[in-house]
Design a protein around this nucleic acid. Structure first.
Lengths: 152, 152
DNA sequence: TTGCGTACTGACAGCGGTGTAGTTACCTCG
DNA sequence: CGAGGTAACTACACCGCTGTCAGTACGCAA
């Protein structure tokens, strides 16, 4: 799947990730996740989301589906962006109160064993697969317009 | 700590657990957790919470503190009460979507390794300790009234 | 350039959860 | 029994999030 250079409109991004446009809009307006390709610039303009944006959107959705409050998800992403530079598709995200780790293997088990509070553990193994799969199936159902590399 | 036969008023229960009375009241009214000793029967009446109620309240608080939505916590407790009979102070609560497990040791690691969605893991090791400790310290600050076995 | 499609925008409603404050009535003590 | 303290009750406000709908204006194809 060589979708790294693809750009996705707001509408398409919401479809791929499986959220409502309203949610996407609200998250962008309230700075949870803004489109990296192009931000909105008024009525009728187009947001452009990168492939990496879509992965992040999917992670947010998974956390919400797991019952995490959006307000907590905000804290998680703020922390992640300030402290974690590595590729977000590796391993597991482990949320321990206000700290967030990326770990796997024995590290993961250590964290688990050492915990006193609630841990939220999100395996990232399926995130990319699901996004890729949705990009393809939606492309089949409603192909992108003529212009290259824009999914809208 | 031989508090198993103790009864706690609503006010005291909220103090011990570290929540507002408003929260406790709302949770009781909306059936998240009702007092097992005695339910409210009108203005001026007294709720009575058992020690086990306090443990459950504490678990709820810990889940909320971890950013879990109250609505999700409701689902967890509904499931727990329907499916899990064992002593709730053992091991770890593992929430996997809409299913909830109590497990520890290798079971815990198996669940973790097999997961595709987000897991919420709550170690129960400290719950009893914290509740006990708070019962004692609050008893010292503001002792129970003369009537025996009622903490109010 | 024009016209159409539609993405963004703004407004408002509804819901859940929590805080605040006043009222009612129970409970306990003297 | 009566009085006082206070727990339960009720009302309402506020906030965050999500859904719905109508208006505005951008973007693209002809």
């Amino acid at each position: 799947m060589g979708g790294f250079d693809q750009m996705f409109s707001g509408t398409r991004a919401a479809q791929v990730v499986g959220i409502s446009y309203r949610q996407l809009d609200y998250w962008a307006r309230t700075d949870l996740i803004r489109p990296s390709g192009a931000d909105a610039s008024g009525s009728g303009s187009r947001r452009l989301y990168t492939y990496r944006d879509l992965l992040e959107l999917k992670i947010i959705k998974k956390l919400l589906d797991a019952g995490i409050r959006l307000e907590s998800v905000r804290d998680v992403f703020t922390y992640l962006r300030d402290h974690v530079d590595t590729d977000i598709t590796s391993a597991h995200i482990v949320i321990n109160g206000s700290s967030v780790l990326l770990c796997d293997g024995e590290d993961l088990i250590d964290v688990l064993r050492g915990g006193q509070g609630v841990l939220n553990v999100l395996p990232l193994s399926g995130v990319r697969d699901e996004v890729d799969s949705n990009i393809i199936s939606l492309q089949t159902e409603s192909p992108a317009p003529t212009q290259r590399a824009i999914n809208s």
